[in-house]
Computed example of a mutant assay.
Amino acid sequence: MKDIFSTRPPTGSRGHTPPAPAALAAKVRTLAPSMTRSMQRVAEAVAEDPAGCAALTVTGLAELTGTSEATVVRTARILGYPGYRDLRLALAGLAAHQESGRSPSVTADIAVDDPISEVVAKLAYDEQQTLADTAAGLDVGQLSASVTALATARRIDIYGVGASCLVGMDLQQKLLRIGLIVHAHADPHLAITNAVQLRSGDVAIAITHSGKTSDVIEPLRAAFDRGATTIAITGRPDGPVTQYADHVLTTSTARESELRPAAMSSRTGQLLVVDCLFIGVAQRTYETAAPALAASYEALAHRHSHRNSSHSHRSTR
């Protein structure tokens, strides 16, 4: 594989401001699975007891978690903070946020023998938590830059497989209805065939929760190499896909369980990001988007009316 920095430097995961205190718990849930075990212990400690950890020095937190000071500092940086001092300030803010009663405890996993009413309640809570975490952790600067790129794009390609493909198709139909030229590719061969035709002024979007799906990364890399603006929607901001992304939009997920795989929970956060992109583009292009949207509504209404009248005509014969 050639050097990933050989064409131009990716900017998607660089220059971010530290996450707000309310976003810290979401960052821990999102990033912990990709951390080393020692770093996970630090992340879990700060998430479970932010007030207690905020009162500790870097040495104290290292002793509490059975790790080293270097591990604590690395964990802070992976979570998006320049150093441990910034993480302590965020922990203090998170503790105050939780004391206000606005941060409920995490719900239990769905069990095989749960009554359907409890399944509904647990799923509803998990969906709400995923949406809240995604909103809290979403980099508004990256989102705004992505919207600008889409609003002025000559052509838009979207890559995703499995559940992420369904999200890509949802974004495609939204953008099509406001007059943009957009294609969502489920076939990886077709995706990369189209990606090599992109150039500066075009936009390519990769949707992958894991951040390491090769069928999604390869077409994004091809688009990146050819000068297109690239966007990654992913639950792993440190994943391989971000190396080829100019802009990274991070999603959060509810906890994965035996009866609720990641593909199911990740879709909720992805759909929120997709809706934010669509609304942002519609706002930026309102003068052309509004007539296009009205025309699509009218065309669909005419089609339904025509079908109903045809059915009525046949039934009276």
Score class of each variant (00 low, 15 high):
G235Y: 15
P237D: 15
P237V: 14
P237N: 15
P237L: 13
D238Y: 01
D238L: 09
G239I: 11
G239F: 03
G239W: 07
P240W: 02
V241I: 12
Q243K: 10
Q243A: 15
Y244W: 04
Y244K: 13
A245F: 00
A245V: 06
A245C: 01
H247D: 12
H247A: 14
H247M: 14
V248H: 03
T250F: 04
T251V: 15
S252I: 05
S252Q: 11
A254V: 02
A254M: 04
A254H: 07
R255G: 03
R255A: 06
E256Q: 11
E256P: 07
E256Y: 09
E258I: 03
E258P: 04
E258Y: 04
L259F: 12
L259G: 10
P261R: 02
A262N: 02
A263R: 09
A263D: 06
M264D: 06
M264H: 08
M264V: 12
S265G: 12
S266D: 11
S266N: 10
S266Y: 11
R267K: 15
R267W: 04
T268D: 06
T268G: 05
T268M: 15
G269D: 12
G269V: 08
G269C: 13
G269F: 11
Q270M: 11
Q270T: 00
Q270P: 15
Q270F: 09
L272I: 02
L272C: 03
V273L: 11
V273F: 01
V273M: 11
V274I: 07
D275V: 03
D275M: 04
D275C: 02
C276W: 07
C276G: 01
L277W: 01
L277G: 09
F278V: 04
I279F: 05
Y286K: 00
Y286D: 08
Y286H: 07
Y286I: 02
Y286S: 10
T288K: 14
A289Q: 04
P291Q: 14
P291F: 02
P291N: 14
P291I: 06
A292Q: 13
A292C: 10
L293I: 14
L293E: 11
L293R: 15
A294K: 15
